[in-house]
Design a protein around this nucleic acid. Sequence first.
DNA 1: CAAATTGTACTATTGTATTAGTACAAATGA
DNA 2: TCATTTGTACTAATACAATAGTACAATTTG
Lengths: 128, 128
Amino acid sequence: MIIRVQPGLGTPIYLQIESQVKHAIAAGALQQDDTLPPVRKLAAELRINPNTVARAYQNLERDGILRTVPGGGCYVNGQSPGLLKSEKLRRLKPMATQLSVEAKQLRLGREDLMQLLENSYDELGETQ
Amino acid sequence: MIIRVQPGLGTPIYLQIESQVKHAIAAGALQQDDTLPPVRKLAAELRINPNTVARAYQNLERDGILRTVPGGGCYVNGQSPGLLKSEKLRRLKPMATQLSVEAKQLRLGREDLMQLLENSYDELGETQ
DNA sequence: CAAATTGTACTATTGTATTAGTACAAATGA
DNA sequence: TCATTTGTACTAATACAATAGTACAATTTG
């Protein structure tokens, strides 16, 4: 798992780390029980404070995406128990609406928008 | 144009205003050359500082969504000249990718995700 | 022209986010 | 067991975001 960050990019470093881990999992590059680099090692590579890495790991743990154990390390979790579909939709709805608003603002047609999302979804990797 | 805000909701007030104006335009409730409430009037209704409203208006103006004129007022702009489709797609890509990542995280299937976006898009109003 | 109405610029204040420093606790492993 | 490695808690410094106060400039309107 290779992680890169760009300070002074606007988005906080810990969010950049979170995002990259999420993408890697969605793309199948990280699988269940894979380990993530120790906070000190990753922090040294990125030349940042270990607590900044820890914060990213803690947020991901809060989201149920991985588990941390002091002295042990940091491991990718298995898939969540699976919510009701209605609940999943409810959670994703705001982001879908925002995407739609932006698309209409740009006068991007409905079909073009759908194709964009299809491509984005597929690019993450067919294998989960 | 009725605008409501909730302070202490996490999202800044000026962003709440921006969002509501964008949605109203996308839904067709606001059309070209419609006027928005004066900053002082809206600020009085919302019990906030006029500068907070002004900031929202300025951001929307920076995005080309409306135009402001001192002494005059605030007007909704006509549609932008229309970018190249490739440019539109480039701008929307990050949001589409993020939505895809979240969907995979929740194990929401491809077809369900597509339908969610279709519904969101249509709900904004067929008439632009 | 003059008064009223509009958006703007500048400044200040308050709170919070981001990151880092240091010390601590839990687990591992020779 | 004991040293090492791991994540964590607590604190603090710094910067920036968000909002407000005040005074100003441009336009409208009678």
